[in-house]
Design a protein around this nucleic acid. Structure first.
Lengths: 258, 258
DNA sequence: CGTCTAGCCGTACACTGTACGGTAAGGAGC
DNA sequence: GCTCCTTACCGTACAGTGTACGGCTAGACG
């Protein structure tokens, strides 16, 4: 259920991403009204509502009202389809973020929260390995541009600007992943987070050796009580974001001082 | 290819994790010498060498020299097997980290690097969604204890100690994921990172609109040149770790001042 | 020696992505 | 209006997956 971007032929992928050589529909295709865009949109809708696990070529074809193999007329394979879906969806970033402040820190925080919203809208993004070889289409470019602008004018050089944006994006992805994983576990088991914790905690208490793990014995219960679970991703997001921005501020101040 | 921990029956899982009620082997099993431990060890070996994608019940059974369904005698299902593998492997953290300094920052940095090594040894860990409902076995406990000790004595309260450890663990997982994703893309395509970038870059140059994305046009080439790729996870790790520790230092100093 | 238990495993089901080859519908040229 | 050709469409097949079910049999116990 993990898809990897950038595994198709680069030339073909780039042509698709930028919608080069989309021919005027001829032949039977015109009747069905099918197109790359419609395929991609249907794929996104399916992944949004039922998860990336439900995105099979057969199911997608059924949703589109065509036979399974017909989808391959518009898209070389599932890998390229996912590339297109990712690029399209990252392009939505522009709707989620509008720069307001002239303070880099406020802008960067807004970028982080917009990314968080993106993962809320499209949780399946976290099941796609896109950081290594991102689909360099218009959506990715627009998102990257917008994020770079947030740190532009802070005094950081170009390499640091890129590194800061990458750091914030990665942080948000990591904490958002926590939300998605908990939701997936709940879906897979039918047991809520609280129920699971209630069922597991007694065993922890029984089997636990407070002498072997004294620090866990001290910290665990307090942290567990505060979160009502083994892990609270939303709390982790708020806590981590402040630390991260503090750390970036140290860099910015150091840069502007010298 | 993404597995989710904590999806089995909590009682059964906890009993397995702590190896309760492992009966003295009777019947034919004694001859084959099979046990939960041997199954788990074989699973880890398989995942280490060929990846989590190669870990199928049939393949594991073949490696153990038994029929496919025999594995189910020792382990309720694949989900529980993965739980056991994760706990066993996180227990190795104790071999990778030995506390030396009495400076919390040095200790926390060592924890981060030990986590990085853990993912180098067992990249498949990143294909397991374990943060939501971690397998609370001896390995997880040992790792958590060790990490909490690193920040103990820094002046932070218990809730903050847990949050800091969670933050660092999540950061390392995110950057390590970059390495694993790039390796997976290379394996899937047979094309190296440099070759992919060389094949893609001309298309970027051709299709790219410097007026639409002026900041990308300025920053992208400089960052790309510095990394020789779209993304360099090792660089991101070193850069991010410093920012993160700086940000945590701000918190520690603030706590100790008041 | 008889019985019973527990380890072992063959078969089956509903899925997956996609290679291959066949069918037929629409546009172009006359 | 007829023919031809391009191209969209799609049925079938293959090698996989996790695991429910039920049958077999080897060893332990009375």
């Amino acid at each position: 259920m993990t898809e990897i971007t950038g595994t198709g032929d680069p030339a073909r992928s780039m042509a698709l991403l930028w919608r080069e050589s989309e021919p005027a529909p001829r032949g039977r295709g015109a009747a069905a009204g099918l197109s790359v865009d419609r395929v991609v949109t249907a794929g996104i809708a399916l992944a949004d509502t039922e998860g990336l696990g439900a995105l099979s070529m057969r199911r997608l074809a059924t949703d589109l009202g065509v036979g399974a193999m017909t989808v391959y007329t518009y898209v070389p394979g599932k890998a390229e389809l996912v590339d297109l879906m990712v690029d399209a969806v990252l392009g939505e970033m522009a709707d989620l973020y509008t720069p307001v402040s002239d303070d880099w820190r406020a802008r960067l925080e807004a970028v982080a929260r917009a990314n968080w919203s993106l993962y809320e809208r499209h949780p399946w993004l976290l099941h796609v390995a896109a950081s290594g070889r991102p689909p360099l289409g218009p959506g990715v470019m627009a998102k990257y541009e917008l994020e770079l602008r947030a740190v532009d004018g802070s005094g950081l050089d170009e390499v640091a600007m890129d590194a800061v944006v990458t750091l914030v994006d990665g942080f948000v992805a990591g904490t958002a992943r926590g939300v998605v994983e908990q939701a997936a576990a709940q879906q897979a088991t039918g047991i809520s987070e609280a129920e699971w914790w209630a069922a597991t905690e007694p065993f922890v208490a029984r089997v636990f050796d407070a002498e072997a793990y004294p620090t866990v014995a001290r910290v665990g219960p307090i942290a567990g009580e505060a979160q009502q679970a083994a892990y609270d991703p939303r709390r982790a997001f708020e806590f981590g974001l402040t630390r991260l921005l503090d750390g970036i501020a140290v860099l910015v101040e150091g840069t502007n001082r010298s």
